[in-house]
């Protein structure tokens, strides 16, 4: 039912209780963000798109978030995640693949308390918007990265550590990569961040792909689920400085 809503049927959405028509998070920037990321395309607020956040962002430079769109699995064209009140709103854009479950966790920086969103574009052309409000002390985007005080990253840039956790179905990969993920908002430190992450098959075939923005935390820790844990996978990264890294997970 939910998957069948088309642009034409949108006016009928108003009568369906499952969907809110006004922003449930009452963000002052909702309309602006909507235009920025999904334009005038049809959308619904949909509880099936889950954004999981901590009660309070203790450390505004490392806020764990999980976006879970597995309820719409198989029907997804693209996922975009953003934080309304961050100076750089975009967090990531995700391009799915049948082998990878559309559920991912990572850590982000937040500048102040904000709505954190995930917009899932389904194959019928409708955006399903999920989100939650994050309470935070803030300042995470304009704080110099730890890398700024410690040259460790200079000789370890792009180094990755990963682990596979077996699940009832498939497996869960968690990997960490050394990268300053500088936002460019700190004086005299240019923006320097991983732009693209690609999960690849053992043979190098690109599976799911993520485009990241600088609000992803320093030394990104990213978790994603694969349907078949018996297959080997690789991770390929490229940052905006043109550095490329690739490693078997």
């Amino acid at each position: 039912m939910k998957q069948k809503i088309s642009a034409l049927a949108l006016s009928a959405v108003i009568s369906l209780p499952a969907y809110a028509v006004t922003d449930p998070l009452e963000s002052p920037l909702w309309d602006y963000m909507r235009k920025t990321f999904i334009g005038n395309e049809p959308y619904v607020f949909d509880d099936q798109v889950k954004v999981e956040l901590p009660e309070f962002a203790e450390d505004p430079t490392q806020v764990p978030i999980t976006v879970d769109a597995s309820a719409l699995s198989g029907d997804i064209q693209r996922i975009i995640s953003w934080a309304d009140l961050n100076p750089i709103q975009h967090i990531f854009t995700y391009h799915p693949h049948p082998d990878i479950i559309p559920r991912m966790s990572l850590r982000i920086k937040v500048q102040q308390s904000t709505a954190v969103r995930a917009a899932v574009l389904t194959k019928d052309g409708v955006w399903h918007i999920g989100g939650r409000y994050l309470e935070a002390a803030g300042g995470g985007c304009s704080t110099p990265s730890m890398a700024n005080a410690d040259p460790y990253w200079e000789s370890h840039l792009g180094e990755m550590k990963s682990r596979l956790f077996p699940r009832e179905e498939g497996g869960r990969y968690k990997f960490k990569v050394i990268h300053p993920m500088d936002t460019g908002l700190v004086d005299a430190i240019p923006e320097f961040y991983i732009e693209t992450i690609s999960v690849r098959s053992e043979g190098g075939e690109p599976l799911a792909r993520m485009e990241l923005s600088p609000p992803v935390s320093e030394n990104p820790v990213i978790t994603f689920d694969v349907r078949d844990a018996s297959k080997k996978h690789r991770i390929w990264l490229r940052d905006n400085g043109g550095n490329e890294f690739e490693q078997e997970l």
Partner: peptide
């Protein structure tokens, strides 16, 4: 374009 230079 702003290269992110190492401190070293």
């Amino acid at each position: 374009y702003n290269a992110r230079l190492p401190d070293g």
